[in-house]
């Protein structure tokens, strides 16, 4: 029994020490591959490294784009035309990247191979333009949905107050403040959408700035909506207290 447990412990220990770091090794970064490419003195080795690098870069981009496309498809409150154009762009990029992957696999000369691998970045700008655009619009859509739901809460609160014959300055003030915050959030979301819409593959240097600006507007909208929600919950609590009092009477 003791020997068996010792063997099991040893095996599992070896797996931890050897296999897990080996798995981590598999997830080598592009930078390491590029370093290896630079240090390699043989053309055949350079070609092999570039092919692996290109394949990994493309697969990672396709996975990220597929996920972004899915997000965009599920973003209910993004304008249909924006959704259509960006969705088509993402689909086209996926198709082009797949074709480039085949092309890279078949290429046997170093110089053209270098250019093809470099074009994975320069021709698509997946991480600089396409993904931030799709993700940003999905976030905007979610906050717009939140805004619509908060409007519905305001409407229901009004109905409830009418039903109870409850008219409180405090509750009304909270609801008015919430309305203002929702309007402010809506403006911020419009601005964010505008910035995201301006991002273009042909203007990669602008993309980072536009993405950061969009982020700031989303952050403002997020704060506005959170504050509006807090105020509405306070109003709900006040109305609930009023209803309790009425029930007691």
């Amino acid at each position: 029994m003791f020997k068996k447990s010792l063997i099991i412990v040893t095996i599992i220990g070896l797996v931890s020490c050897v296999a897990l770091p080996a798995m981590a090794q598999e997830i080598a970064s592009d930078k390491e591959a590029i370093q290896e490419y630079i240090e390699s003195k043989f053309e055949t080795a350079k070609i092999a490294i570039l092919k692996t690098l290109g394949k990994n870069m493309i697969e990672r981009r396709i996975n990220a784009l597929t996920y972004a496309k899915d997000l965009l498809d599920n973003a209910r409150l993004v304008a249909d035309d924006v959704k259509q154009v960006l969705g088509d762009e993402l689909d086209d990029t996926i198709v082009s990247l797949k074709a480039l992957k085949d092309d890279i696999e078949e290429e046997e000369s170093l110089e053209p191979l270098k250019q093809k691998v470099e074009s994975i970045v320069t021709s698509f700008r997946v991480y600089l333009v396409q993904l931030p655009k799709a993700h940003g619009l999905a976030v905007v859509s979610h906050y717009r949905t939140m805004s619509v739901k908060l409007d519905e809460i305001i409407e229901k609160l009004g109905d409830k107050m009418d039903e109870l014959g409850y008219d409180s300055e405090d509750a009304n003030a909270l609801i008015d403040e919430a309305k203002e915050l929702i309007s402010s959030a809506s403006l911020n979301l419009d601005k964010a959408e505008g910035k995201l819409g301006q991002m273009d593959i042909d203007w990669p240097s602008q993309a980072s700035t536009l993405s950061l600006e969009a982020r700031e507007f989303i952050l403002n909208a997020k704060g506005d909506l959170r504050d509006a929600f807090t105020k509405l919950k306070e109003a709900i609590a006040k109305i609930a207290a009023a209803q309790d009092e009425e029930d007691e009477e």
Binding site: L71, V121, Y127, H135, A138, H142, S208, K222
Partner: peptide, 19 residues
């Protein structure tokens, strides 16, 4: 969660390679 994803997009992956 979506916003966090958006903020975490690693744009440095689109730095030119210069092979």
């Amino acid at each position: 969660v979506l916003f966090k994803d958006f903020k975490n997009i690693d744009t440095s992956q689109d730095d030119n390679l210069n092979l």
